[in-house]
Each structure stands twice: as C-alpha cells, then as structure tokens.
Simulated assay, not measured.
Amino acid sequence: MKKLSLLLLLSLALFSCKNEKELTAMSDNKTKASDSAALKANDFAIIIHGGAGTILKKNMTPEMEAAYKATLEEAIRVGYTILKNGGSSLDAVEKTINVMEDSPLFNAGKGAVFTNEGTNELDASIMDGKTRNAGASAGTTTVRNPINLARAVMERSEHVMLSGKGAEIFAKEQGLQLVDQGYFYTENRYKALQKIKDSEKTELDHDDKQAFYDPNIKDSKFGTVGCAALDKNGNLAAGTSTGGMTNKRWGRIGDAPIIGAGTYANNATCAVSSTGWGEYFIRGMVAYDISALMDYKGITLEAAAKEVIQSKLTNLGGTGGIVAVDKNGNLVAEFNTAGMYRATMNDKGELTVGIYIE
C-alpha cells in the first residue's frame, strides 16, 4: 500500500513537472513571438548604394550633387513601387539597379570605367534570400544591363556564374539586350583612363592618393551600384553591378559578382550589397560575414555590419561599405569612407538620400 502511494505521488510530481515545463515553453514561445513582433520595423523596405569612397562636399558642385540625388531617388522609387504593389524583392532589386546601370553617373552599365585596353568589362550578381539561389556574370562587354544577365543565370541555368564570351552567348540566347562597345563610352571615364595610363598607375576609382578626377568631382569614389530589398511576403534579395577598376588588366574581377563577398541574401537573416575595394571584400567575404554574425551570434544587422566594416574590413586594410536590410525590415548603410551614395525607403514611403558621412 505504501509502495502504491509512493508511486502515485511520484507520478503526480512528474505530471506536475511536465506541465510546468510545457507552460514554461509556451511562455517562452509567446515571449519570442512578442520579441519578434517588436523587432518588426517594416513590412517591406528597400535600400540602395551608388558607390563609396572619398566623396567630399567641398569637391561636389551643387549641380552634380543634385544630379546624384535625383538619380538615386528615381532608382529607389522604382523598387519601392514594385514592393508597395506586392511585387517580389527580386523584381525590385533588378529594376532598381537597371536605373543606375542606365545612368552615366555610376560605374555600372552606361557609366562603366575603362580597362587598360580601352574596353569596358562589366560584372554583376543577384541572390534570392528565399531559396538562396544566385546568379552572376563577369567580364561581359556587350550586355547592356549585367544585372539582368545575372538573374537569367540564376533562373534559367544550372550555374551560378558565367563569364566573358560564354556569358554573352548565353545572354543572346536568352534574348537580353546587347549593345556595341560605344554605348558604354563616357568622356569623363575615358579621360580618367588616359590620366592613369599617363602616370602608369592602376587605380581603384576611389583612392585619394591615386584619384579619379573629373570636372565636377575633384576627388574619387566607387561607383558600383547595389540594392537590397524585403518584400511583403518576407522574402529578401540583393544585387550588385559594376564596371570594376579603372585601368584593370588581365581580366581582373572584383567582389561584385562574387556571392558572399559582393552580394548575399538569406531570409533567415538579411540581404547585403557591397561596394569598395573588391580584393578586400573577397578576402573578408564581407556580405556573407554580416549574415553569419547575425545567424551564429544572434546580433542585430546594425551590430554585425559595424563589426565587419569598421573592424574586420578596416583591419584588413580595405575601404568601402555595404547597404543591407534584415528580415524585420531594418535598414543599414555602413561604410568606412568619407561618403557613400545611398538611399532608403520604408513601408510608409519615407525617403532618405545621403552622400556624405553625416
């Protein structure tokens, strides 16, 4: 009888303990759900960059500053409209980047810098945060909008990156718009090449010691363009497009088409697009590193971006920046240079446009 009573008491204790654990778990889940809801900043959001570098207000004419701001606003409003109407983050990223690729102001598409041989070699990449599928193209010379080619590689091939002539053959087969080399010609970019060749230097279209000078900006910049977006369905995407380095040789490729360095997106964390000294962004796998810090350490996008750009990248000797949006719609632009062309829009339609370090 005593044994039976003891067993009954033990069973009741175990039942009580189990119920307590279940209640605790339910409470924890509610807390987590509450915390998640509290962290939700925007139902959808978009952020772009047009390059980072030694961008100083004293070297910018009012007319040029207005031109950059107008194009940044034009570009981001294209993506914002897509997101507002329920479109996908991939569409928003691609169409937003198209606007900047078609502008001579940026080192991408129409405004691409020249190689040592006097040609234009373009790179781009895009990534879908939902599937983590990605596409990239490198070293193309006739594709008008390389970001379109990157997306075609992602969605219409079994590959992640295509390069050179093969990429152009694929672009033609996919019906993408091809142009003559002359389309990419801009006077300022050509003069920049001649200046560097005269001094026999290889220039990163950013360095104030090996600077790209034009009549309007007396100091240099990165002109790579990029975009990161979150859509109403909770899907993240990022893309990056560039003309690379002025006076580059030997088929040099930077970080822009490298998944994890120039572009990364993961619905569980964030979407990132990079701009800067590509070799360092590749060595540091900057875009992925930000996502990994959020995933493994559980820190915020802002904290992760600051650690990677202001600490890791800077300690490596690299310069540049990133734009990013996390799964909760928080927007971050982080850079270690004097400026970065950038713009953001949230689900309320609030627009911010920035150039300098403020």
Rank of each mutant, 00 (worst) to 15 (best):
I82Y: 11
F114I: 01
D43G: 13
K221N: 04
L9R: 13
L8D: 03
G135L: 08
D91Y: 05
D231Q: 08
K18V: 13
T131F: 06
T115W: 07
G129S: 05
A338V: 00
T344P: 01
A271T: 06
K165N: 11
D102V: 02
L351Y: 04
G243A: 11
E334A: 12
I169R: 15
S199D: 12
N19F: 14
E200W: 07
E22N: 14
G317H: 04
F184T: 03
F106C: 11
K18Q: 13
A338I: 00
R252V: 11
T242P: 01
K95N: 14
F212P: 00
L122T: 05
D219Y: 12
E358P: 02
E187T: 07
N235M: 07
M345R: 04
C17H: 11
A229V: 03
G329V: 04
F170A: 10
A134V: 02
F106D: 10
K130W: 02
L9S: 12
K201C: 00
T140H: 10
A66K: 15
E20I: 12
L162F: 13
V160M: 13
N145D: 07
E307Q: 12
K58Q: 14
D207K: 09
K297V: 01
K21S: 15
R144T: 02
A108K: 08
S137L: 09
I290N: 10
M60I: 01
G349K: 05
I55V: 11
F170E: 08
A52P: 02
G175T: 07
V143L: 09
R156G: 11
A92Y: 07
A112Q: 03
E94L: 14
Y280D: 14
A38R: 10
L236N: 06
G260W: 05
A229D: 02
N85F: 02
D205M: 06
A343L: 00
A25D: 13
A167V: 05
F15E: 13
G354H: 10
E168I: 08
G50D: 03
D91V: 04
V99K: 15
S274W: 00
Y280S: 13
C227I: 03
T246S: 12
Y356L: 08
T142V: 14
